[in-house]
Amino acid sequence: MAATPHSDLTGQVVVVTGAGSGIGRATAHAFADAGAYVLGVGRRKDALVETAADRPRITPHPADLLTADTPQEVVDAAVERWGHLDVLVNNAGATRMMPLAETTAAGITALFELNVTAPSLLARAALPHLRRRRGTIVNVSSTYGHRPLPGAAHYAASKAALEQLTRTWARELAADGIRVNAVAPGPTESEALAAAGLPASAVDQVKREETGRIPLGRRGEPQEIAAWILRLADPTATWLTGQVLAVDGGLGLV
């Protein structure tokens, strides 16, 4: 299921984190297909090269967002290559099952470093360039940023924090003409569950249970989320800011 660009973003420069797979890869493709230049950021070089295959507008940029100098280095790489920066898509994140009885300080810290601290520092590094271009930030949250997720409360809390950052940055940066919005995907086909450490049998069970709760009767595809990220970043969406858009097959209605 391919996303059809509804926008002409020719000449726009976009940074997409977590571009090696899933929603990040689909988002990089959507922006490139709409005419933008994309810096695809992620930790796995091979995966980024696959993302960029047959799309010369995507430049792979391997980087660890948890390293202190990375946020500035990523922004500098985009600006040095294309001269400016219009859009930051904070997609990189981690899912972790961590019931309260098994909660550790290290586990909490790891989740919040990637899901909250890293996008914050990347946005700070991008801010001077976004001000010059009256650009936009799109954060990728989760349906569990505003719904309980038993057994993974700290993951849900980190996404709730990202949603509040979205609303607050939107107020803070409105005078600069910078729009800040978020997409909150429902259960979407990706590597996230396996990356969270769940065995294959547990992943299959979670997928079946999630599908059973979704009114539209299926999990989402990364391209469906990417299409809405593209629309939120569209420079013609001039009066939309501070919104968290649930793209979840109706799960929020249940």
Rank of each mutant, 00 (worst) to 15 (best):
residue 131 R to I: 13
residue 178 I to E: 09
residue 123 A to F: 00
residue 5 P to V: 05
residue 227 A to H: 12
residue 132 R to V: 04
residue 137 I to R: 09
residue 250 G to V: 03
residue 72 Q to T: 10
residue 29 H to F: 03
residue 116 V to N: 07
residue 50 E to C: 10
residue 30 A to P: 14
residue 2 A to L: 12
residue 211 T to F: 08
residue 193 L to A: 04
residue 195 A to P: 03
residue 76 D to W: 03
residue 66 L to W: 08
residue 158 S to R: 05
residue 231 R to F: 10
residue 14 V to F: 01
residue 92 A to V: 00
residue 6 H to M: 15
residue 234 D to V: 08
residue 7 S to R: 15
residue 221 E to V: 10
residue 4 T to C: 06
residue 68 A to I: 02
residue 141 S to Q: 10
residue 37 Y to Q: 14
residue 123 A to P: 00
residue 111 L to V: 06
residue 74 V to G: 06
residue 226 A to F: 00
residue 19 A to H: 07
residue 113 E to N: 11
residue 81 R to T: 14
residue 137 I to K: 07
residue 1 M to I: 06
residue 56 P to H: 13
residue 12 Q to D: 15
residue 242 G to T: 00
residue 3 A to N: 13
residue 69 D to P: 03
residue 237 A to S: 15
residue 24 G to S: 11
residue 252 G to N: 10
residue 85 L to N: 12
residue 136 T to H: 14
residue 139 N to E: 02
residue 195 A to W: 01
residue 88 L to H: 06
residue 69 D to I: 01
residue 184 A to D: 01
residue 55 R to E: 04
residue 128 P to D: 07
residue 129 H to N: 11
residue 200 A to M: 00
residue 155 Y to C: 00
residue 199 P to T: 08
residue 224 E to Q: 14
residue 235 P to Y: 07
residue 102 E to D: 14
residue 114 L to V: 10
residue 177 G to H: 01
residue 44 R to K: 11
residue 131 R to K: 15
residue 132 R to E: 15
residue 207 K to W: 07
residue 9 L to F: 11
residue 177 G to V: 04
residue 4 T to Y: 05
residue 69 D to Q: 10
residue 148 P to K: 09
